[in-house]
Design a binder for these strands. Structure first.
Length: 304
DNA sequence: AACCACATCAACCGCGAGGCT
DNA sequence: GAGCCTCGCGGTTGATGTGGT
């Protein structure tokens, strides 16, 4: 697939599909000189490709850590979730999928997910609240499970699932009435992956340094404890904790560690302030006084 | 078998950000 | 500050694969 015909541009540089020999030259160069300085590559190797093309070929195809094969179900779900939050920021999404490239995810989205989501999910539907937690999962029986974080604080925020307060108590209406389909089953799952769903783009960007690998599904309380003031864990990885520390003007170091400071793996101390962490994350949780009641019907607008 | 329409995905293009002079 | 260069990103293109008729 792709382009195979070899085209020569005006400046004598080749275009189109890469040959095995070109790949070999590029790989050898990167092995010797490392990534970067792409424009020098052609000069040093005689490869008749522009630096931009070399970088693209390396990043999207020749890198040793590229993951081959189909996108898994888990990966697809994560792509869908992150796209809801971030929009078409493919590089950012790819950064959370090891071995996948932005180009690959973009292609996958355009050729598969977007179509599937459009086909299966009309822009609005009504669901019933059957429980109150910080996350609501809409699971269409027999359809593709599209999880949605819904919380009042997200109203009006771009890229977030929006709640229409005017129809909060309306009867169930829309495409699921009278067409043979069952009423959507509403489930609630308390998982780290669902936890991230309700964030706006801005909120989410603050979360990207969080080391989610330290959390397992079903272990969301660990994160909640951290946010609510339990400083016993080493949940915050250095980039985020340092950010918080610096924000508080209280830069920690091994020589100035104080009581309550937490060491990281490198024996450096990050005396992160959980109050600040709470400031950062607390707005993302559903407040107990939000006014939602079990049994309420709500309309959810799925924005693209 | 031949043709056509659509899907896939590698690669190209334009643009903006950031660094350097 | 202006101009140039490099890099990275997102949108788009187009050759090829695939399935239907």
């Amino acid at each position: 697939m792709g382009r195979s015909s070899r085209i020569s541009s005006k400046d004598g540089l080749a275009k189109g599909a890469w040959s095995a020999l070109e790949d070999e030259i590029l790989v050898d160069y990167v092995k010797t000189h490392g990534e970067g300085k792409w424009s020098n590559l052609a000069k040093h190797t005689g490869l008749k490709r522009c630096g931009k093309s070399c970088r693209l070929r390396w990043m999207n195809y020749l890198r040793p850590d590229i993951k081959r094969g189909n996108i898994s179900g888990d990966e697809e779900e994560l792509i869908m979730r992150m796209h809801k939050l971030l929009g078409n920021r493919w590089a950012l999404i790819a950064g959370r999928l090891p071995g996948r490239t932005d180009n690959e995810i973009k292609n996958y989205w355009n050729s598969y997910i977007a179509k599937k989501a459009k086909d299966q999910f009309p822009s609005t539907r009504s669901v019933e609240i059957i429980d109150k937690k910080e996350d609501i999962r809409v699971d269409l029986q027999g359809g593709v499970a599209l999880s949605c974080g819904v919380c009042p604080q997200q109203q009006g925020k771009e890229d977030a699932i929006q709640l229409n307060p005017d129809t909060k108590n309306a009867a169930l209406t829309g495409p699921f009435s009278g067409n043979g389909l069952t009423k959507p089953k509403l489930e609630l799952e308390n998982t780290p992956t669902n936890f991230i769903l309700g964030f706006s783009s801005e909120d989410f960007s603050n979360m990207l340094d969080y080391d989610f690998a330290k959390l397992n599904d079903g272990n969301i309380n660990e994160l909640k404890n951290a946010i609510e003031g339990d400083s016993s864990g080493t949940l915050l990885n250095p980039p985020l904790s340092q950010e918080i520390t610096e924000k508080n003007g209280d830069l920690g170091s091994s020589s100035s560690a104080a009581e309550g400071d937490q060491p990281n793996n490198n024996n450096n101390y990050y005396n992160y302030n959980m109050v600040s962490a709470a400031d950062l994350f607390q707005p993302l949780f559903l407040d107990s006084n939000d006014g939602w009641q079990v049994g309420d019907d709500i309309d959810i607008l799925f924005s693209n």
